[in-house]
Structure formats: structure tokens, C-alpha cells
Simulated assay, not measured.
Amino acid sequence: MSTIYITEQDVTFQIQHHYLKVFHQQNQRICIPIRNLSQFIIFGNISLPKEVIQIVHSQQIPVLYLTQTGEYLGRVENPSKLQAKYLTYQRRRARDTEFNRATAESIIWAKLHNQHTFLQSWTRYHANHTIQRALNYLTLLMDNLPLAPGIDELDEYSKEADNIYYCAVGSLLSFYNGSSYTTAKRTSGLLNLGNQLLHQYIYTLLNTAGLDPNYPILHRDDRHELPLAWDFTAEFRAPIVDDLVLNFVRNLANSNGNGNGRSHLHNPLQKFLQHWEAKLRTFVLHPYAGEVSYRQCLDLQVREYRASLMGDVEFYRPLALKFRPLHSDFTNTIQPQTVPLKLVKR
């Protein structure tokens, strides 16, 4: 299956013989069987033609609109109208207080663990009091999670962890790329974009797995669209999004220091999307599945949750990473490109 990213205004579409063709400046950039299309991610105010919208509705292809900095604009499809295959199980488990409490604790524990692992992995580059304080506090919170009486209290633990964790991440970013307002704003935008891309990808996995994204474990307020997908981002933000952004900023700073910064600043959105896809291809040691990519890890965790809903496994086992990635094509094989749209297969 494939994702199409569109980042420029002057693109056109054509449907021909069950194929979608995408053109930029009258040059064909993409030709893909419609059956192989998994989603569109569109940046900015770019309208899809009527015939493409018809395909989107008939094939139930997700279409996400974001700003150039990754802020949510809207969707073409209406996820609430899709009938999930395992909705009955989700509704039944929604009334199971013990199940939801245990699952929430597992997810938050993995989130804190992965934040701790992320910070530890970067201390060989830079360590200070702020980072050490965050490491100590994350350890304390992990130990105290069983004392939280319910999901609301667990959520408070999670928010406390985020406050101190992102102070430590900020100190790392300042170390590599200064502390100017422009740098901080750019970094915040990259983190937001990464989180939106992660959320969208998990949403497509939930659809594939037959789960309704509107039955959350943690994000139970009305501020989060498709809240179950946001629940699963908790385990993966540190190792995928935060590590990606820190690497991106560090490489940009190194290039600027060598006088090569212009190549990285040219169309940073396209550059970031290339690095995002490379990050998903990064291999890690999964505690149960062995050496798999982050893309596979995300799919495994969604299926693990579905199995726990159905009672096929006793409890939900979260992803707690213990090692740095074994290998990645993030910095080695991804080269700068200037195409305004991109087809990505998975």
C-alpha cells in the first residue's frame, strides 16, 4: 500500500484505467493502481478534483489536510461513519474498569520508559543537570504508577513526565542548534508535524485492524480527534518523533557549520518527509518479534491491543525499547530531493 504526500499547489490529477496519475508542471510524477493507494496527506489548501473525491469515498481512502507546519486542517472522509469490525468488543471493554486501568498503566509506563531510553541514548552527545534530573524523575514516576488509583491520576503522572522530559529535550536542542526564537519555533513545528504524521499512520492501522478510533483509553476529552490513535502515539513519540527531530536539527546545525546549510534549508518540508519515511524503515529489537522496523512495531502494537480486547491475550503488552536502532537509512541513504510530491510504499 502507498501514501501520497502533496506539498505544492500546482499539481493536477487524472484517473485512467484504474490508475491514479499525478502531474506537476505538466510532468507525470506518480502513476499508481488505485487499489494500492492507502492515503493522501496534503499540505495547504489544495483541492482534489471531483473524480478523485469519488474514488476517495468509494474506496474509503483517508485524506488528511495539514498546514506546512503540521497543524491539523481537516479530513475528507468522516471516520465516525465507518463501522469497525471489532466495535462490539470495544464497547464491551469500555465498561471494564479493570481492563482500562491496566491498559492505561501499561501504555504510560512504556511511554515513560521510552522517554527515559531516548534521553539516555543522547547523553553520550550531551549531558547536563536538566537531563539527569529528568532521568531520575522518570524513573520515580515509573515506580509509582501502580499507586495511581485510576486513569485520571495516571494521566496526571503522564503530564508531569512530559513537563520535565521536554525541558530536557529542549536543552538538547539548544545545545545543537542554539536557542533563538526562530530555531525554537522551527523545532516546535517539526515536533508537531511528526506527531500528526504518527497519529495519521496509526489511524490507518486501526482502520486496517477493524478498530474504531473513537473508543480511547487515555484521551477521553473532546479536544482530541480520533483519540485511540493518540493513545498509541504515547509509546512512540520519543523513539520515533523526538529522535527524528533531534537528528534532523543536529544534522542541519552540522551542515550550517560546514557551510552547507542551504541544501538543508531548501524546501525543509520535503526533506523532513523523506526523513520521516526513513525513520519508519529503521529497524529495532522488538521484545517479542525480534528485529523489525518501526512501521512493523506500530502494526504489532495495534494488533496486540486488538488481541487484548478479544481476550486472546491476558493483558496488553506495550512496546518498551531497550536498545538503540540496529541500523537506519535516515542519514546514510536518504539524499536531498526537490520533488513537490512523493509516493511512499509500505
Rank of each mutant, 00 (worst) to 15 (best):
Q196V: 01
V22W: 04
F232I: 04
G259T: 04
P325K: 03
Q28E: 13
F330Y: 13
L280P: 04
S174M: 09
S263G: 04
T103L: 06
I41M: 06
Y166D: 03
K159I: 14
P287T: 09
G74M: 03
P227H: 04
I15H: 05
A161I: 03
I53T: 10
L300K: 02
R324I: 09
K21E: 12
Q68Y: 05
G261Y: 03
R281Y: 09
E77M: 13
R91L: 15
H286V: 08
T139I: 02
Y176W: 13
Q196W: 02
V63H: 07
V52H: 09
Y125M: 07
F175A: 13
F99E: 07
L197R: 01
S38N: 12
R346Y: 10
N114M: 07
N332C: 07
F118Q: 01
L280M: 05
P216G: 09
R262H: 10
K322E: 15
L64I: 13
N267H: 13
Y89P: 00
N214G: 08
L252I: 04
V56I: 15
Q196Y: 07
A229P: 05
V52A: 04
T333C: 05
Y166N: 08
L37M: 06
S174Q: 11
G170I: 04
R95H: 14
V63I: 08
I202T: 12
N136E: 04
Q83L: 12
Y288Q: 14
V76Q: 15
T3Y: 06
N195M: 12
M310W: 03
P287H: 06
F323D: 14
T88D: 13
A320Q: 14
G189F: 07
L191I: 06
R295E: 15
M142D: 05
F175M: 11
Q115W: 04
P268D: 06
T12R: 11
R317I: 08
L197M: 07
L147Q: 14
V249R: 08
Q9M: 10
L135R: 01
K159M: 12
N256V: 08
L48N: 03
F236I: 05
L269S: 03
Y65W: 11
D212W: 02
R346D: 12
I34N: 08
Q196K: 14
D329Q: 11
V344R: 09
V52W: 07
Q200P: 01
L211E: 03
R92T: 10
K342C: 05
L197I: 07
T117F: 11
H219P: 07
I4M: 09
N144D: 11
D10L: 06
E51D: 10
A94I: 01
I61R: 01
A127W: 00
N254G: 02
N100P: 00
V339H: 11
T183S: 11
Y137W: 09
H275K: 15
S308A: 14
T12Q: 14
Y288K: 12
Y125S: 10
R306A: 11
T97N: 11
G257S: 10
I46E: 06
T67S: 14
H57T: 12
L244T: 06
V339W: 07
G311R: 05
S58V: 02
P49F: 06
T117K: 09
R223I: 07
Y203L: 15
D231F: 02
L64C: 08
L145E: 03
R35E: 15
A307G: 00
F175P: 01
F315P: 05
Y316L: 06
D299W: 00
Y288E: 15
L119C: 05
Q296C: 03
N36T: 07
Y201R: 15
A238T: 02
L300G: 00
L140A: 08
N45K: 15
G189V: 02
